[in-house]
């Protein structure tokens, strides 16, 4: 890394510390653009730092609001110096929206902090990362956008079959080894406990839960149910 480049990366890292950036987003594609736009709309722009592989007009437009670093050389993503210089001091989440599996794997291999949550898109997640996500549940989150896309395709097919709004979430830590039959979330129906050990098992809610168990939920009203669910989970986290 040359002197000027190192200075640029350091400046970015210092700004990230100053602004207390907690989310580091890698990428520059259409998903990155839409995601950054959404975060700006929510008012979370000060929490975001963007590391882009391309100089694009939309990034120039958001540069005043979001902390941006351009790293156009793909080789740099395969070297430790970049990550060491950035530091990821206040980082809580790293969101990788790259399409190139090599860059994704490089970023993943150098972000080894266990406290960091890594978020990827299923559409671009390489098989090795998918395997890791299975091993490190909760730390590596793969957003299943493919499932949503395919659901939309099904709706266009006019089949006598529907993919229902059923999701699974991990059991809140405070409820591990306790039954969860008393869980009540507005607009959400708690169905069963899903235990994905050697054999997939669906267990009734009155049984005590275990670590790595997930709760099966039916969302009665997809938008409102999700809001209630987020509120419910934030209560448990707090």
């Amino acid at each position: 890394m040359g002197f000027f480049k190192r200075r640029r990366v350091r400046k970015f890292a210092e700004k990230a510390v100053e602004q207390q950036n907690t989310m580091f987003v890698f990428g520059s594609n259409i998903f990155t653009e839409a995601f950054i736009d959404q975060l700006i709309q929510i008012g979370a722009q000060t929490r975001v730092a963007l590391i882009s592989d391309k100089k694009l007009n939309w990034i120039e437009e958001v540069k005043d609001e979001v902390n941006v670093l351009y790293e156009e050389q793909n080789e740099e993503y395969a070297k430790r110096h970049l990550y060491e210089t950035i530091g990821f001091h206040n980082a809580e989440k790293v969101i990788i929206l790259h399409e190139d599996p090599l860059i994704i794997q490089n970023i993943m291999s150098f972000i080894s902090n266990e406290e960091l949550k890594v978020i990827l898109l299923a559409q671009f997640a390489p098989p090795f990362v998918q395997y890791l996500a299975g091993q490190k549940q909760g730390q590596i989150i793969i957003v299943d956008n493919l499932n949503q896309i395919v659901n939309e395709l099904y709706q266009q097919m006019s089949l006598p079959l529907v993919k229902p709004p059923v999701i699974s979430i991990p059991v809140p830590e405070s409820r591990i080894s306790k039954p969860i039959d008393d869980l009540q979330i507005p607009k959400v129906r708690v169905l069963n406990i899903l235990r994905e050990d050697s054999k997939d098992k669906i267990i009734p809610l009155d049984q005590p839960t275990q670590e790595n168990d997930r709760i099966l939920l039916y969302l009665e009203d997809p938008e409102e149910s999700l809001k209630h669910l987020v509120d419910f989970l934030s209560q448990y986290q707090s």
Binding site: F35, I119, I141, V143, D144, Q148, R214, V230, S234
Partner: peptide
């Protein structure tokens, strides 16, 4: 999905 994943780890069974 991305915004939601910031607050919870969910998937589609």
């Amino acid at each position: 999905g991305l915004v939601l994943s910031l607050s919870m780890d969910f998937n589609f069974p």
